[in-house]
Structure formats: structure tokens, C-alpha cells
Design a binder for these strands. Sequence first.
DNA 1: TTGAATTTTCAAAATTTATTGAAAATATAT
DNA 2: ATATATTTTCAATAAATTTTGAAAATTCAA
Lengths: 168, 168
Amino acid sequence: MKLSEAKAQFISSWGAFGTHWGINRTMAQIHALLLISPDPITQDDIMEQLNISRGNVNMNTRDLVDWGLVDRVLIPGERKEFFSAEKDIWKVATQIIKERKKRELDPMLKLLGQLEKIDGDKKEKNVKQFVDTVSGIRKFGNQADKMLDVMIRADESWFLGSLLKFFK
Amino acid sequence: MKLSEAKAQFISSWGAFGTHWGINRTMAQIHALLLISPDPITQDDIMEQLNISRGNVNMNTRDLVDWGLVDRVLIPGERKEFFSAEKDIWKVATQIIKERKKRELDPMLKLLGQLEKIDGDKKEKNVKQFVDTVSGIRKFGNQADKMLDVMIRADESWFLGSLLKFFK
DNA sequence: TTGAATTTTCAAAATTTATTGAAAATATAT
DNA sequence: ATATATTTTCAATAAATTTTGAAAATTCAA
């Protein structure tokens, strides 16, 4: 298989993969392109390589920057703006975990905490099942939350870092 | 807060939450409804409570059964079919992990393995970056794969089970 | 300043995905 | 067997999401 063919396949499946994870196809494809680009590239490079419009590139690179997965790079003497992706896949993973935790898990846990405090007879089976379900999910979610915090901090702590290097 | 209000909120946010995880909104809402229902319920119950069409309920309950999250229940003397969800949230989580691993992670790892074997000079920086990226993701993915296998089997193995009970 | 290069915005269009509902298929009781 | 209840299918429709592209805003050099 030639590099060009492999690139196309990688970008396309990374894009499809992304859609299963709440990330839009194009954003994931741009990310894929940046991951395999040894040097920073411009909006125009992305437009050309993926055959998408300028507006589309602009919006999705902005999202990638917001997610902390891509950096804007200024190259001295160049007028255009360049983009470059974090290449360490462990850092990519922890960054995604960190963001999703903040955007999805934390708000959900907050809501569940409120829903547990409903009025009504805890002996009535509908009330009981509701409270049991909600508190079960909340407890599970809190454990997951703690576990993810450990993973996220692993890079910043020597001890946990060397422990989790195993998974790198 | 009253039960009816809390129910509505739980169903709606579980649905929104689901969309971030590659599951469609309605499927997640039906799942939420089943999670808080102490007894099995019918297609008609679901249609009525969520205000959605029969066809929609049918397709989404089928998907939930395929995902292994919901069971069809036959109640003696009843003509209609009833549905009931697994209530143990740990089992729900491992089931989801198991399915997503099979549907998404495993095929991706297979593809990455193929993409690594491209032709071309490994010293050329475009080739090098491609191979490095792909193999980095593959290695990370393989570790994740193993870790998830451990979690999935935790329920079936006494030793790992008691180890991971910690997270329950 | 002015003007050219570049980036950003956002309403309209295109595409993708989800939902409906009625007809067909299936299952069950008499 | 026949009638009735129930489930399933799927083409048509609706809704949600993504993409475009041209105009507006911004940046920067001279």
C-alpha cells in the first residue's frame, strides 16, 4: 500500500470513528490529517487535502483548538496561520477525557444529585425504583469521575506517572 | 420536586447524554424509562409516556435488545410483549463497553495494523510521521483493549471481581 | 491611511439521520 | 379456519446537523 492510499484510509476511518464518539466527522478528519502531518499546515492546505470549504475548516479548527487538541502556530515571516496537532496519543486521550468529563459527566452528576431528593414515599415501588436507579448511576458515575481524575493527573504526578507509564 | 417532574428530567437528560456517546436520543430515552420502571412495560406504555410512534419504539427497543441492555419478557396470560432493562448499572456499563469494543475498537485496531505496513522510505519525514502516528495509536488502543477485557471479565472472575468491586 | 491578504461569520443549501404511520406479516384465541 | 390482536417493516416525511460561499471583519505591510 502506498502512503497516499494509506493516508486517505486513515483519515476516512478516523472520521467515521469520531462520529461514534460525539465528535463530528470533519473535525475528526482534520485532526487525523494534522496527526500525520510532520509540519504545521494552513487552512488552505486542509481545504485542498480534504476538499472542504474555507468556512468549514475555520469552524472545525476552532473547535479542535477549544478541545485543546490543536495549536495555532505562528511561523516567522509567514502571513498565514498554521495549525499543528499534539502527537503524543496519551496526551490526546487525557485531553479528550478531561474535556468530556467537564462537558458531560460533571453536569450529569450534578443533576442526578438533585433528582435523588424527590418528595414521596420511599416505600412506593415507583419512587423506590427511581431513587435506586438514580443513586446507582450517581455512585457509579462518581467512581468513574475519581478514576478519570487519577488518569488525568497521572502525567503531572511522578508516582502515578510511572505507575501508569505501563499503559503508554 | 415531584416524581413525575424528576422522571421527565431524568429521561430527557439521559437522552441528551446518550447522543454524546454514539447512542441515539430516543433509544437512550427508552432505556431511561425502562431503568426507572419497577415492572416490565409494553410498546404502548412507551409510546404513551414518550409520545413517539409505534415504529420508532419498535426499532429502538430492538436495538436495545441487540445491545444486550433490554430483555423481552413474556408475562403469562398476557398477549402483549413486555420489556425490562438490566438495572445493575455495573452490568449496564460492562455490556456497553463490550459492545462498543466489538463494534468500534476492534475493527479500528485491525485497520491500523494494516496501515502500518506501508511501502516507502521510513526516513522520509511524511512516511515516518504516518507510521509513528499509526503505531502510536495502535499501541495505545491495544492497551486499552486489554484493560477493557479485564474490566469486562471482572464480573466473571472471582479474583478480579473482588479487586474491581472497589469501583462498584 | 490605504489596500491586499487572511480569517471569521452566518444565512441558505445540502446532506444525513430520525420519525411517522399505514400496510404487511405474524401470532394467538375461539 | 377465521377473526382479532400485536408486531414489524419501510417508503415518505420531518427534523437535525453539517457544509458552503460570499460578505464582513480583521490583520498587517508599505
